[in-house]
Amino acid sequence: MTAAEREVIGVLLADDDERFRGVYRKLFSRTDGFRVAGEAADGAEAARLAGALKPAVALLDVQMPGTSGLEAARRILRDTGTRVIMLTTFDLDEYVHEALTLGASGFLLKNASPPEVLQAVRTVHAGNAMLAPEVTARLVHRFAPRRPGHRHAFAGQVLSEREIQVIRFVARGYSNQRIADELFLSLETVRTYLRRMFAKLGVNDRTHLAVLAYEAGLLHEPR
């Protein structure tokens, strides 16, 4: 097997709309570096195929008959190493939040352009989340605990004050470079802080880090 062949990303498509699957099937089949590993019309079949085929990335419609896409995501993320991107027609924060807390790596609207879809799959396959910073910031605003001064039990023991400063900026949607500028740090130092926090808190990317932070009450400045 050549290096190019090893880099092909296998994608599982799960949507009850066969026409929609057909559009994505053509997109991935005609684009170098991708292949369609399998297709499912409901969540139960998606979970079964993910276990059998071990695709790199699964694209799951949130709303499917029978077993939902969110339940399929729960099973896939629990039982396989497949990374998950949720698909929906509606930009609903509740879906984004639930999908991320399950461990999904991305959230994609069905009207996304072909380049956006391909980039999302590449990003997730590389181990990153594909939510834009402004979406992360919107989630924080909606779901952050409204308890000023509250500190999660792990805050003082696991995260340093500097790391908490970094995580707050991440949750506001700041880029690594902007965080570096705000805290007068080098870009590589910010990246080092992020890698350490990923390891400490058991998350894989900035989006999940922000989700954990606001659920833990870390986003309120002390008074």
Rank of each mutant, 00 (worst) to 15 (best):
M64H: 05
Q63A: 06
E71R: 12
Y95G: 10
E98S: 09
A99Q: 06
G66W: 07
E71K: 12
A73G: 02
L70Y: 09
R74Y: 12
A58C: 07
A72T: 03
T101W: 13
T88D: 12
D79C: 00
L87Q: 12
D91W: 00
S68G: 15
L100Y: 06
L92Y: 03
L100D: 12
I76N: 07
P65Y: 14
M86I: 02
S68T: 11
D93V: 03
G81H: 11
T89K: 00
Q63E: 11
L87N: 06
P55H: 09
L60S: 07
G69H: 10
D79G: 01
L100S: 05
K54S: 15
P55A: 08
A58F: 06
T89G: 01
P55V: 00
L92E: 07
T82D: 14
T80C: 06
T80S: 02
G81E: 15
E98V: 13
R78A: 14
G81M: 08
A72N: 04
A72L: 09
L77K: 11
A99G: 13
M86W: 11
L53C: 11
S68M: 11
D79N: 02
L70N: 04
R83K: 14
D93W: 00
D93C: 02
M86R: 03
R78C: 08
F90N: 11
Y95E: 10
T82W: 07
E71C: 10
D91F: 06
R83N: 09
I85Q: 02
P65E: 13
P55M: 06
T101I: 04
V57W: 05
L59Y: 04
A52W: 07
L87F: 15
D61L: 09
E71T: 13
K54W: 02
L100T: 12
E71Y: 13
R78N: 10
V84E: 04
I85F: 00
L60F: 14
A72K: 04
T101D: 15
Y95M: 04
I76E: 07
G81T: 15
R75N: 00
P55I: 01
V62P: 09
I85K: 03
L53D: 14
Q63R: 10
T88M: 05
A58P: 08
L53N: 13
P55R: 03
V62T: 07
I85D: 04
V84F: 05
E94N: 03
V96I: 14
H97W: 13
K54R: 14
L87H: 08
M86D: 02
D61K: 00
L59Q: 05
E71W: 12
R83L: 14
D93H: 12
A73C: 08
T67G: 05
V62W: 07
R75E: 00
E98N: 12
V96D: 00
V57L: 09
T82P: 12
F90R: 11
L100Q: 11
S68H: 10
G66E: 03
V62C: 09
P55S: 09
L59N: 02
A56F: 13
H97Q: 14
A72I: 01
T80R: 01
D91I: 00
A58H: 08
D91E: 11
L87M: 15
